[in-house]
Design a protein around this nucleic acid. Structure first.
Lengths: 229, 229
DNA sequence: GACGAATTAGACAAGAGTGTCTAAATTTAT
DNA sequence: ATAAATTTAGACACTCTTGTCTAATTCGTC
């Protein structure tokens, strides 16, 4: 009798290990070589699996590719939402807290493996897969930008910022935080921790020069918390 | 006697037409299909030329690719420097002039054919051609960023802006101007004129909120010109 | 109109990659 | 231990692509 399968119950066990290993390797290879440049034997070798196993799991090269993009989109979204949940709603030190948030965003969502891979695949193959593209756009930017904007709106409402359009502010925040990393990103490189911190610091400072609530009195941010509450 | 060749004297004439036609088509196809996905027959067909002619002109696929990237880099740089030369050194209306400049930059250097193609090729194949990459980085960003920064430095020195680090300001200006176009660029799309204007307007406004010289009096910019001189 | 250079179509060999198939080996659970 | 499922290596047919070669044709020029 098979009624005692574990409650979670993904069928076998080594089976899933192979599957994960294939996904890993395929992401790496597709990203490095582009869809057309990648070949199944490379992926099989990198995954430590026979070519046939890949065909057993995924059918063909294109289905495998689609599975990779879906998987990366999901994982990246999860990471982004996790990071958004660390947004400083009640900042002690507005500048420091926003810098730290910007650094987390860049490091954990843009520079990490999944972020780099997804970005590259979208850039490289986005035009050839309109449906996949539409799906990513809805699930990714379509959901994350409003979430970030909502956090900035809250911060403004609490009296920390002087913002008219939270959507615009959210995009500008992100753009400023990564302003000095664009060339590196363009080439698929990974900036050092120090470069990330530099760019985030400069970016947040400029952001606050533009949007920090201006007080008549001197020491601004600390008191504005009271004003907002 | 052949001493009466025109002073400019690139050997033949229909020859050069073919060459240009090949470059055009190859750019298009490499960009659309990636290096590995492109094939010579496609390029030949799109150029209206026989496959052999391409081999006569360029030797092989890789040499052709390198020629394309060099060509695009040169043309893009020329466009960028031409646009930089329209930077408002003596603005009548700082906000309006900077917005117009940002729009020119985006439209003529980032959204145009060459800009789109070069960006995509760098993103897609940059990692596979380290020497080409190094060359582009030097000739492109390595020369254009300082040139833009110098313009902002001048504007600051003339009393229009309150900037500490012109290099940082230049990058932030560009980042802000395109902040709302990132998702579109990511997928190789071209934003509408209206979207470009929107993003530039919002970006420049934020930039000026951060960096415009703050005067005690009301109508600021007009007078600061005198102060700088 | 005639010459030489460039272009063309087409065939071609060589190589690489996809996706299928088979029979043997291995793993997993009963 | 045994039975079922999965994985494996290897061979295979097929397609596509590169880069070369040849002979005919077209083009630009004198």
């Amino acid at each position: 009798m098979k009624h005692d399968v574990p409650p979670d119950s993904i069928p076998p066990r080594g089976h899933e290990a192979k599957r994960a290993s294939i996904m890993d390797a395929a992401g790496e290879v597709f990203c490095r070589e582009s869809f057309a440049g990648a070949n199944i034997d490379m992926i099989a070798a990198e995954a430590g699996v026979s070519r046939q196993t890949i065909y057993n799991h995924h059918g063909d090269k294109e289905k495998l590719f689609v599975a990779i993009v879906r998987d990366l989109t999901e994982r990246c979204n999860a990471g982004i939402f996790a990071t958004i949940s660390t947004f400083p709603d009640q900042p002690k030190d507005l500048e420091a807290d926003l810098i730290a948030f910007a650094v987390r965003m860049t490091r954990n969502c843009i520079c990490n493996r999944d972020g780099k891979f997804l970005r590259k695949l979208i850039q490289t193959e986005g035009e050839r897969y309109p449906e996949l593209f539409a799906e990513w756009r809805e699930q990714g930017p379509g959901r994350t930008w409003p979430a970030i904007a909502a956090r900035f709106a809250r911060l403004a409402h609490a009296g920390f910022l002087d913002i008219e359009d939270p959507d615009v502010a959210a995009r500008q925040f992100q753009a400023l935080a990564n302003a000095e990393l664009q060339t590196t990103f363009m080439l698929g490189g990974t900036p050092t921790d120090d470069e990330v911190l530099q760019s985030a610091t400069h970016g947040v400072r400029t952001f606050l020069r533009a949007f920090a609530k201006r007080q008549p009195a001197a020491d601004a941010q600390k008191h504005s918390a009271l004003a907002g509450a």
